[in-house]
Design a protein around this nucleic acid. Sequence first.
DNA 1: ATAAACCTTAGAGTGGACTTTAAGGCAAGA
DNA 2: TCTTGCCTTAAAGTCCACTCTAAGGTTTAT
Lengths: 126, 126
Amino acid sequence: MKINEVSKKYHIASDTLRYWERVGAIPAVTRDSAGYRNYDNEDLDWVSFAMCMRDAGVSVEYLIDYISLFKQGKQTVQARKELLNDQLEIVSARLAKMQKSYNKLKYKVDHYEKIDKDYEGKMGKH
Amino acid sequence: MKINEVSKKYHIASDTLRYWERVGAIPAVTRDSAGYRNYDNEDLDWVSFAMCMRDAGVSVEYLIDYISLFKQGKQTVQARKELLNDQLEIVSARLAKMQKSYNKLKYKVDHYEKIDKDYEGKMGKH
DNA sequence: ATAAACCTTAGAGTGGACTTTAAGGCAAGA
DNA sequence: TCTTGCCTTAAAGTCCACTCTAAGGTTTAT
């Protein structure tokens, strides 16, 4: 699968795909004889993984660390698992915070007319 | 309440509080005779609101638009409510996306040993 | 009275994550 | 064969949201 097809299928800029590969947020992508990227299933799995992590708010730097461990092979399985677990907790906290914010926002919208004081507190009535 | 007290109470940098006010992401804060910021309850409500929105992933630019409408008074109530509703939907979508990512990540961690193929696919066995 | 610890502003600097540009190679259709 | 459109890299540029610096005014404690 060429980069532009991947871009369309996954709704992600091809520039971003190249960027992720360049900095090491995904492992090196398979190439064809012309040197063009030719994403196989495994490459696509890494793209999905990176997108998933980014959607969850995980930093590119973290992805780089993770992939770096992955490239070092089996002996890093435990370290990788721990890294994932750390991120899992962070994501979970972020999710809870967002949920709380969403609820507050929802409440505000639902009670808008009642809540709004419309600057009268500061501007005085006129 | 002075800026540093607000900073400590809300766990937010005073630079950020000044920045939000400067760009108009919150309305102008009450000042004392020396020109120092002296946050009253209403000012604090705006700080909470901005923090809540930022936590939900809402952009500073959106906050500026919202506060701009607010400053124009009662005739913008409907427009503001619509803006909030738009953001509510966007936040809701982001939340769902994050939840999905979290679930995938959780699954990956829980099944780590089974899932990991450890680069053998590409590097061959040795 | 004077030093330490606050506060102010304008403007410059930073970090993260892309995104664009420049200069060029490859491939498929007319 | 030529043109259109894809692909490549390295490097520079952009955008967002802060964050810091410089230069100076105020308040508080000794």
